Computed example of a mutant assay.
Amino acid sequence: MSGDRAMGGHEFASASVSRHLVRGAVGFGAVIGSVALIPALGPISLVLLPVGLVALRGCPTCWTIGLIQTLSRGRLQRSCTDGTCQLVTTKSGAT
């Protein structure tokens, strides 16, 4: 994790899959609600948009990347030797 940040990588993963899915439900619900409620509430409904974007950590793509990172956490690990990096499966994640 800290190696990814040092190399300019981004960490979008959550602590657990269920927490990540709740964040997605809140985020997508707020983004969709902000647009869907315009006829009923007018432009005031757009205050939900920033809430949704914060929950999604910026965008739906960022949330999706985070879901993939959350699912693969503990199963894949980057191994770098002599300037060459590769993904390896950890023993705890191997089936």
Rank of each mutant, 00 (worst) to 15 (best):
M1R: 05
S2V: 04
S2Q: 10
R5Y: 12
A6E: 08
A6S: 04
M7N: 11
M7A: 15
M7Y: 15
M7K: 14
G8R: 05
G8D: 00
G9K: 01
H10I: 11
F12S: 01
A13C: 03
S14N: 15
S16C: 06
V17H: 03
V17Q: 12
S18R: 05
S18N: 00
S18H: 02
R19E: 13
H20W: 09
H20S: 06
H20R: 03
H20V: 07
V22K: 06
V22S: 06
R23Q: 14
R23T: 01
G24S: 08
G24L: 14
A25M: 14
V26A: 10
V26N: 01
G27Y: 02
F28L: 14
F28I: 14
A30N: 14
A30E: 04
V31E: 00
I32K: 07
G33K: 04
S34V: 13
S34Y: 01
S34W: 10
S34F: 05
L37Q: 09
L37V: 13
L37T: 09
I38S: 08
P39Q: 03
A40G: 08
P43H: 10
I44Q: 11
I44K: 12
S45A: 15
S45L: 07
S45V: 12
L46P: 00
V47P: 06
L48K: 13
L48P: 11
L49D: 10
P50F: 05
P50C: 04
G52I: 00
L53K: 01
V54N: 01
V54P: 02
A55L: 06
A55E: 03
L56G: 10
L56Y: 08
L56D: 02
R57C: 02
R57L: 06
R57A: 08
R57K: 13
G58F: 04
P60R: 15
P60G: 15
W63E: 08
W63I: 07
I65C: 05
I65Y: 03
I65V: 13
G66T: 01
Q69C: 04
L71D: 08
L71H: 09
S72M: 10
S72F: 12
R73G: 09
G74F: 01
R75I: 09
L76N: 09
L76K: 07
L76A: 08
Q77V: 01
R78S: 13
R78T: 14
R78Y: 07
S79I: 02
S79G: 00
S79W: 06
C80M: 07
C80A: 12
T81D: 15
G83K: 03
G83A: 05
T84G: 00
T84V: 06
C85Q: 04
Q86A: 09
Q86W: 03
Q86T: 12
L87Y: 03
L87W: 04
T89C: 05
T89W: 13
T89N: 06
T90H: 07
T90G: 10
K91L: 00
K91W: 00
S92V: 08
G93Y: 02
A94I: 08
T95N: 11
